[in-house]
Design a protein around this nucleic acid. Structure first.
Lengths: 343, 343
DNA sequence: TTGTAAGCGTTATCAA
DNA sequence: TTGATAACGCTTACAA
């Protein structure tokens, strides 16, 4: 331990500590001796002792729904890299989309003395945010961005993104829509997307038929089943399907091929996330892209700024980019004028 | 802090500590008073103090190359869940395939007092394993499994898997091969796969032409570029391409469609990992599946067993399952007999 | 620039 | 079953 190093180097424990925490307050000569002693004894500072004495844990936490989703994995990756560069260890918790688990994880991280926290979305128990405030731990909500959010947030505006997507289709002359989404429960991002679709359609005097709303797991299989059920429904078929992400959209595309539905001739399809495969399959998928690694990096930066005593902005908005590709086109029986409107 | 709780409950600090660590050594009556006091004061044990006094950090670490790859993300997920169930926090480090970074991360985790560690693969600096041994931290190598490994390992036999894959193609009558792999440098798993392909072909008196070996990033784009260059090479074209994973194979399939190469009629293609999309695209992709979440879970379990003082086996082998699908078929000019041989 | 010594918030030993 | 008290390994006033 430290005192052994001190003894071997012939200095006090305070000096050894300084060598690692305020190196320039130690003369080069002494510093070298200490470093040599440390190497000899194969010593490095013990984090627990350090945390206890300095009341700084050098730990930050992030709670995500699941690592199975690439968008969250890359966000963690971005945060991890940015924090590591500042000597802060990132601790990860997965809630599995369960608010109760998220709360437990946050408490565990507070017990660990996390100095900063990030949570995905705002759909969490109030106790979660209460705890964060009570212990004065700076935190940020990620992946979602709202001007008027009570929390600092770093992400994109899910509502605005789906307005844009819906307007794109309306501009192409579409008037009959279906939506296939991942579970909306406890998920404010998905809820915002649904709301955006509804609001945008409503503005044009349109609405989605209940038979044309599918909610289920975020998989290709769900996308396939959804299209099948939509196509079999005893009502007018939609000319466009808006999906909650690329996985689901990929499933819709695959099933369309199977059912002999022409895309985009007969049906337009949109996704979200812009997976690598989405621009490679035929037809290529119209989707939106968000730099989730950057969200992670910015989040870490934001929290570091707060720890540094800077008073950063309310958050950061990251842009969601619409990538128009082959899977969307003019509605089958649209007036030429309609389709041209927004092009 | 704890002493406040003790005061409020009218007991000693030792008793408060017991309530949380050895609850049944405390009378129900006293326990209740303490718990009530803790809730009132909104107190929970501080991990640093705890770690210092008990010399147990309740932290475990894992070093993976990158979170961008689903197989590592799900392994982390499996470990995290298993450790969390035992009150152990998992700390994550990404090496970005850089051995030096891996070493730094391991040291950082040792400083944090990690009680157990997992690292992906064995291609690490000796100092890394030396450090782990020096500090007597139980560890396991994951994602790779060798009977005769000096380390405990949990994963699958990369060599055996690619032998099986290569034999599958040879059984189909293929005699001319190409391989498209992710970077082999500092990656023992990929190296084992190359070795397996070479050894298996050699056993049949075959070898891969240098022009037919492509090494590059693990992307669809690399797969596409590789097939193009292989197809343009001024030598006999291969009848089968073995890819290092599904991403690369997906790229090969896409480029084949573009180039008008018939699959599997003209060319057989294989991947590895069995992504969800691989059984959905046309033609469906022949590949191998490994349960990486399970690898993570087993790794955590193995390390927990060691911490519990059990002396578990040398490791666990997880099976890699060959999924034969549409992208592989008989070699174009194979004798009927050849193709039947291994069917 | 360096040293002394008092904590930091728990757990663990021993005694009661 | 409970309590007193000395660690645990480091940081940080304060003093020299």
């Amino acid at each position: 331990m430290l005192s052994d190093v001190a003894k071997l180097a012939g200095v006090s424990t305070a000096t050894v500590s300084r060598v690692y925490n305020e190196p320039d307050k130690v003369s080069a000569n002494v510093r070298e001796r200490v470093e040599h002693a440390a190497v000899t004894l194969n010593w490095f500072p013990n984090a627990a002792g350090r945390a206890l004495a300095s009341t700084r844990s050098h730990i930050a936490g992030i709670i995500i729904p699941t690592l199975d989703d690439q968008v969250f994995a890359s966000q963690v990756s971005g945060m991890q890299a940015a924090f590591a560069a500042r000597g802060i260890t990132l601790v990860l918790g997965c809630s599995n989309y369960d608010p109760a688990q998220a709360l437990v994880q946050v408490r565990a991280m507070l017990a660990r003395g996390a100095e900063a926290m990030a949570v995905v979305g705002e759909a969490h128990p109030p106790e979660l945010f209460d705890a964060l405030r009570l212990y004065r731990v700076p935190y940020a909500v990620t992946y979602a961005y709202r001007e008027d959010s009570p929390h600092d947030c770093i992400g994109f505006d899910n509502f605005a993104a789906y307005v844009q997507m819906t307007e794109h289709l309306i501009g192409l002359g579409h008037r009959s829509f279906a939506v296939c989404l991942q579970p909306t429960r406890d998920n404010d991002r998905v809820q915002a997307r649904v709301a955006a679709i509804r609001a945008t359609l409503e503005r044009h005097g349109l609405a989605v038929r209940p038979e044309h709303v599918c909610e289920g797991e975020s998989t290709i299989g769900f996308g396939r089943r959804s299209l099948r059920s939509i196509w079999q429904a005893p009502c007018e078929r939609p000319s466009a399907i808006i999906c909650g992400n690329d996985h689901i959209a990929l499933g819709v595309l695959r099933e369309a091929e199977e059912l002999g539905i022409e895309i985009p001739g007969e049906l337009s399809v949109t996704g979200f996330d812009d997976l690598e495969i989405s621009k490679e399959i035929r037809p290529t998928l119209t989707t939106m892209r968000v730099d989730t690694y950057e969200i992670g990096r910015l989040t870490a930066q934001h929290l570091l700024d707060i720890l540094d005593g800077k008073r950063p902005q309310h958050g950061h908005e990251v842009r969601a980019l619409l990538e128009i590709r082959e899977s969307t086109g003019p509605a089958p029986n649209a007036h030429a004028g309609d389709a041209r409107l927004q092009r």
